[in-house]
Design a protein around this nucleic acid. Sequence first.
DNA 1: CAAGGGTGTGACGCGTTTGTGACTGGTTTT
DNA 2: AAAACCAGTCACAAACGCGTCACACCCTTG
Lengths: 224, 224
Amino acid sequence: MDVVNIFLTSELGESLEDFVHDQRRFTFDRLGPEGPRRLVEGPMWAFVDWVMPELAGLEMCRRLRADARTADAHVTMVLEEDDPEDRRRALRAGADDYVIGPLTRTAVLDRVLALQSRGVERQATRRFELGALTIDMAALQARWNEQPIVLRPNEFRLLRFLAENPNRVLTREDLINGLGKREPPIDERTVDVWIGRLRRAIKAAGGGNPLRTVRSLGYVFDLS
Amino acid sequence: MDVVNIFLTSELGESLEDFVHDQRRFTFDRLGPEGPRRLVEGPMWAFVDWVMPELAGLEMCRRLRADARTADAHVTMVLEEDDPEDRRRALRAGADDYVIGPLTRTAVLDRVLALQSRGVERQATRRFELGALTIDMAALQARWNEQPIVLRPNEFRLLRFLAENPNRVLTREDLINGLGKREPPIDERTVDVWIGRLRRAIKAAGGGNPLRTVRSLGYVFDLS
DNA sequence: CAAGGGTGTGACGCGTTTGTGACTGGTTTT
DNA sequence: AAAACCAGTCACAAACGCGTCACACCCTTG
């Protein structure tokens, strides 16, 4: 069973350790301006407060993305109030998700457990290969037989999410949620366009088509 | 393995029955103002909509708590929008949890499975094997001795339903209902065409004919 | 402030899926 | 043996779902 590492910028951590009884499955760590205090393995989940003592939350968010140790953490931004403008800023700064604060223990666990149960936990490995496809998390680059695939940010996340759940039909809804898009609600048909663009990019790199359409249901990353 | 009983105040139930393939582990029931329609055993999970035709969601929530049959159900409140005030009200009314609606199939399953998997083994990808036939629910793919069977959506659903009830004569009506076709009423003879198409697809994959016709009654999936 | 790239969406067209009526050949009933 | 019944198959039209394009919007960069 994997361990999920949870980073928080607030002091909720100690309270959570009390609340969660199965501590083998979770670690909690305080997240300061200089990043995590210790290096961890396994999926990471960061909850970043909008206002922090020493640093703006948005800046923290950008630093997490820039830091190789935390580049593929799932970042949830904690907003104080429900301001659409702030939400957009959070996502733009690299957050995957947001909650409207104040952050509660149940809100944290809901999110982490929901993600876990879907088999969606982020790979600890920075790099994984599926057939001819290689995905390098640290470099944020994908290759088909050493040939780089030119991907836009959203396409990269889409490919990563699909590749993390191979041989499994993902509905359009799964994909929208998997990319952490919540605001504004994304039209399901938009996923078709994402897939189309991703396929074109893979083909442009001389690749095949590992993305199978499952009519009336969704898409699968076909392994084998 | 315990059965989890899921109650919903919305009409998502039927859609879920179609979506969840392992029905032995779940039951779905509609939740009306007077509570559940039948008495069940095992863990219960209720999803209560914030607005309901005849009753406010909060009141429903209180009734569930007051009713001995459902007092220890896990109640999830479905909020229409992310209003902190509403969330607090929901929790105060006895809800354990909340989601921001609209309630989706994956949201329901995420939560229920998260509970299930807490301390329990992660559910493996669902897959049945019946003789030479393999049905992979995650990939939504069927195989005959490793040879993929090319199926259209309706054919896949038909095969699944037949394979879930092997050695049992299913009438045409059973099959129509089993596939969740209600609107418009389907002509029973249409089932013959479905069967014919399914047989042809299996044969095209080099398979035999596990579908036996029972004259004047219906069809059976023969497991021998 | 202008130029350029990334992204979401409506619209259009095409191919696929699917329900149905009709025809056929076989089986049961009278 | 005729009539009635039943299931397999085909062809077809309508509906549906998906891929694609162009466009508008917003953000970033210079």
